[in-house]
Amino acid sequence: MKIAIVEDDINMRKSLEIALGDYDDFEVKTFRNAKEALKKLDESYDLVISDITMPGMNGIEFVEELNGRYDVIIITGNATLGRAIESIRLGVSDFLTKPFEVETLVEAIRRSQKVQARVKKRVKKDVPTNNSMFYGTSEALEKTLNLAYKAAKSDASILLLGESGVGKELFAKTIHNNSPRKDKPFVAINMAAIPENLIESELFGFEKGAFTDAFEAKMGKFEAANGGTLFLDEIAEMPFHLQAKLLRALQEKVIYRLGSTKGVSVDVRIVAATNADIKTKMQNQEFREDLYYRIATIPIHIPPLRERKDEIIPIAQKCLEDIVEKYDFNPKAFSEEAKEKMIEYHWPGNIRELIAVVERAAILSDGDTISENDLFLDARI
């Protein structure tokens, strides 16, 4: 197994290199920072172990750049709940807090190794999913859905609020599918996932020759969603200087492609979402108050999974069924102890974390029953 260690602290880096070098099946390479690692990582690597606090590019930004190409274990001496949740959102395999025993890290590596070995032996199938379905129900969910259904019938702008991983895009699609625009496009854009210098062109499009690499004209998300719904995810992360242009487009229902002075009329319904404290951002002049009132005609708060406990087992069981089908496993089921553990756990990463835990448990479990220990919830935050 070829492992990349990305750690700016030379003592920590060397210690890990020496400790893991004692294992014959580990080939260890070290890098001083994320930018150095990005230049040299190739398909031969199986796992990346990365610190969070590093100069130039931190570990969270590094994982975003890796974009799921490698299993990642995060190690940090500055653990916070926010960073752990962000790591979960990005799909890291494990999150270890310094100081830790080398054996703890090796156990995490072995888990990753086992997952990779089992997945490689199976043929991945495309499992059809229905994004308009909620697999469980709870009183909190029903209240929120009832509000969403009522809002869907209008053309008012909706702002979805809630923690990362609660299912904001699923709610946005549900609103679209229950609206008069359901037969028109649903187009999503994540403001946090696009480099700042590309957001404007992604939203509004560009004409041929508008900038160096603009070899042909391209339609933006507004035009692509014309007649339908435009979902602006992580809206609070939109650069402040572009917010005025977005506000103008929403008010005038006209957009201008980069490199063009000709306006294009657009008719879109806006559903936006954020997990940030957007009112604090307004107070800090990081988000325009006039834009907030334009996109938040109907604000809808989506409760976290810990307040929707009745949904945990139904969601977990549906995910398990999909994973069993995807990897052609024998049928699997959760033990009663595993179910109790899932219900008791606080799920800081919400539904996204639950899905990741179930998938890993399904792959790592040896028998047809997934036990409490297969979930590895005690190792999480």
Rank of each mutant, 00 (worst) to 15 (best):
234 E>L: 09
208 K>E: 00
224 A>E: 15
232 L>D: 04
201 S>W: 08
232 L>Y: 07
207 E>H: 02
248 R>A: 07
238 M>F: 05
218 K>I: 05
226 N>C: 10
189 I>S: 02
242 L>Q: 00
198 L>E: 03
250 L>C: 12
244 A>W: 00
220 G>I: 09
245 K>N: 01
217 A>W: 01
214 A>W: 02
232 L>K: 11
241 H>W: 03
255 I>F: 12
234 E>R: 11
234 E>D: 15
237 E>P: 15
214 A>H: 02
216 E>Y: 13
208 K>M: 00
203 L>T: 11
260 S>W: 07
243 Q>L: 01
222 F>S: 14
202 E>G: 09
194 I>S: 02
218 K>R: 15
197 N>D: 14
255 I>V: 14
194 I>R: 02
230 L>E: 08
208 K>D: 00
237 E>Y: 13
212 T>C: 05
258 L>M: 14
219 M>E: 15
206 F>P: 09
216 E>R: 14
200 E>T: 04
210 A>V: 05
254 V>M: 14
238 M>I: 06
227 G>N: 11
233 D>N: 13
189 I>M: 03
256 Y>A: 07
263 G>I: 07
199 I>G: 03
254 V>G: 10
193 A>I: 10
191 M>V: 05
247 L>S: 07
191 M>A: 05
242 L>P: 00
242 L>A: 01
205 G>L: 04
232 L>C: 07
200 E>D: 14
218 K>A: 07
254 V>C: 13
203 L>N: 09
255 I>R: 11
248 R>G: 06
205 G>D: 11
242 L>Y: 00
193 A>T: 12
228 G>M: 08
261 T>F: 05
197 N>I: 06
204 F>L: 07
190 N>S: 14
254 V>T: 15
200 E>G: 03
226 N>A: 05
250 L>W: 13
192 A>E: 05
248 R>M: 09
204 F>K: 12
221 K>C: 05
264 V>I: 15
248 R>V: 10
189 I>T: 10
261 T>Q: 13
247 L>C: 08
230 L>K: 08
241 H>R: 03
239 P>N: 13
215 F>D: 01
257 R>D: 03
201 S>T: 14
231 F>M: 11
261 T>E: 15
197 N>A: 11
229 T>F: 02
260 S>Q: 08
249 A>S: 15
228 G>T: 12
207 E>L: 01
227 G>T: 12
243 Q>R: 02
243 Q>D: 01
217 A>F: 01
249 A>Y: 11
242 L>N: 00
223 E>F: 06
250 L>A: 13
191 M>P: 04
197 N>Q: 12
242 L>V: 00
230 L>A: 06
224 A>W: 07
193 A>F: 06
206 F>D: 04
192 A>N: 06
221 K>V: 07
235 I>G: 08
189 I>Q: 03
209 G>A: 01
243 Q>A: 01
243 Q>V: 00
215 F>W: 09
